[in-house]
Amino acid sequence: MKNTFYITLLTLLFSACIGDDIIMDRVEETLKITVQAASIAAGETFQFDARFTNNIGNTEEGRVVWGSSDESILAITEDGLATAITQGNVVVTAEVTLEDGSMLKEEMDVEVSMITVVVEAPTSRAGVIATTTFYDLEGDFTLTEINGGVSLEIADNYKATDALPGLYIYLTNNPNSISDALEIGAVTVFEGAHTYELEGVGLTDYDYVLYFCKPFRVKVGDGKIN
């Protein structure tokens, strides 16, 4: 009887200690060429750029290695500085070696010609917010480049539960965690169109809109920024 009492007491004491919850935060690595040219004038140089996010959605610098399919037409350094040598067509590749040894690769066709034509980046992206739980959350959104930042416009078909205190909205590259996410703020509109303006944020910096119950650490829903 006494032993049972002590075992019960010890079990309770250990149960009252802070434990660990494992967050399944793995995401697919991504590689995007963010600054690119369709054509480069012979004799000129052009700096390509790309963004790599790892398996937890963090941006990693210095991982991308650049290459050219024909160095006699267009030479390119490992960090993406291209020199157009003579007219012709090449394939420029950006590659990252992943932890498991596999390669993540993006490529684009580039012409060496008389003029340089930079591929214009899009000025807006869009997506659909959807719940990942049993709480109401839905709606379309558009992320638009504005002077000095971006504007996140939530469409009038948006609807979110008001049953959760501490519902916050984020931009992130990992929809499974708010670590390293950009906190936009507490959600105060639960139906209809509204807009968030974010200074110092680039259009391609993040790939997801995330709704998260901050105090209780519960993901409520997300939307991929296409």
Partner: peptide, 22 residues
């Protein structure tokens, strides 16, 4: 009376994401 929340640990890296509190 005691109330606590657990630590959040990354299942990918094993790193502490958010420290628990009590």
């Amino acid at each position: 009376s005691r109330s606590y929340v657990n630590n959040e640990i990354s299942g990918t890296t094993g790193e502490l994401l958010t420290a628990g509190e009590a």
